[in-house]
């Protein structure tokens, strides 16, 4: 089991650890606003408490000591000073925001696709991963985000950054992690039943490891096919919607699926043989089993033939 950095253990009282090479100042601004607020808050509470204590009514017919309806200089001060302060904060936030949004010309490009309910990443050499975003350390990476279904949002708390992921539109996010390790990625735009399971891991590697990763062939042929299929079941995100113990989830269970008779929403029926399973993986909308929603994204191009075979072997093994 790989270790993903805990968001609450490291870092400061309010913020997780900051691994950004460019947004170190973020935490400074956050705590600047925080302490300014605390100072004002203490001031307001102090003044109020003083008024409350000194003006407490002692007998039921006691009148106010004085009636004061306005004080122009005071009112000007308490309008102008906060205005200047918030405009100053605006300026600091604006500068930092422009830094967040700027894209260094030498950035590596990785495509990010959000689907119900997993993240798919496509690297410059065409390699694809699901659930793991692998990036080199101290290198600007430009993420081009899009969705194939509903809105998602791509959030990296340790980098202090997020961007909405919108269907039929490309949005851009730049990151530059300065620390090697594994960090959390969340979906932060509500997207349905498995929204809170739409997690991914940011894997920051040394440059050498990153290039080795790009070149490596994923498929491990030293183990039995069905065993490889079992690994792919979690690695490729099948686990999010298909159970292996017979319980119904968003999609049909894989338990006893092989050679079972399937009834579809259009009234037709078919035996779940290899051909059907391959079709379901590559063209999931072709036949929808009754009682289920047509929500599965296509895995065409995401799995190589060997991987599809391995998954089918695994499904076979799950059938009596």
């Amino acid at each position: 089991m790989e270790i993903i950095q805990n968001l609450t253990e490291k870092g400061t009282f309010f913020l997780p650890s900051n691994i950004s090479a460019t947004l170190g100042e973020f935490d400074t601004l956050f705590y600047f606003i925080l302490w300014l607020s605390v100072i004002f808050m203490v001031g307001l509470i102090g003044v109020s408490a003083w008024f409350l204590i000194t003006s407490k009514r002692k007998s039921s017919d006691q009148l106010a000591e004085k009636q004061i309806t306005h004080n122009i200089p005071l009112e000007i001060i308490w309008t102008v000073v906060p205005t200047l302060l918030v405009l100053f904060i605006f300026w600091l936030g604006f500068k930092q925001y422009m830094l967040m949004r700027s894209i260094p010309p030498n950035a590596t490009t990785i495509y990010v696709s959000g689907k119900k309910w997993f993240w798919e990443f496509t690297y410059p050499n065409g390699k694809k991963t699901i659930g793991d975003l692998v990036v080199p350390v101290n290198t600007p990476v430009k993420l081009i985000l899009s969705s194939t279904d509903v809105l998602h949002s791509f959030y990296l708390p340790n980098l202090r950054i997020k961007r909405d992921v919108i269907p039929n539109r490309y949005t851009v996010l730049t990151i530059e992690p300065a620390k090697i390790g594994n960090f959390r990625i969340f979906c932060t735009e509500y997207c349905g039943d498995k929204h809170s399971n739409m997690l991914a891991t940011l894997k920051v590697m040394s440059n050498d490891d990153y290039y080795a990763f790009l070149k490596a062939v994923d498929f491990d042929d030293s183990i039995p096919l069905s065993e490889a299929g079992k690994q792919l079941y979690t690695k490729k995100g099948c686990v999010a919607c298909h159970s292996i113990d017979g319980s119904p989830m968003v999609g049909p269970t894989w338990k006893n699926l092989y050679n079972a008779n399937r009834v579809f929403t259009d009234g037709s029926e078919r035996i779940a043989d290899e051909a059907y399973l391959i079709e379901s993986i590559n063209y999931p909308q072709a036949h929808i089993v009754t009682g289920y929603q047509p929500v599965m994204p296509s895995y065409q191009g995401l799995l190589v033939d060997q991987e599809i075979t391995a998954i089918i072997e695994y499904i076979k093994e799950l059938s009596d």
Partner: peptide, 18 residues
């Protein structure tokens, strides 16, 4: 006061939808 964190551009980006 916490609205200031959310009105500020950069801090909002981190805090939005949390």
């Amino acid at each position: 006061f916490t609205g200031i964190f959310l009105g500020t551009l950069s801090t909002n980006i981190h805090l939005h939808d949390t």
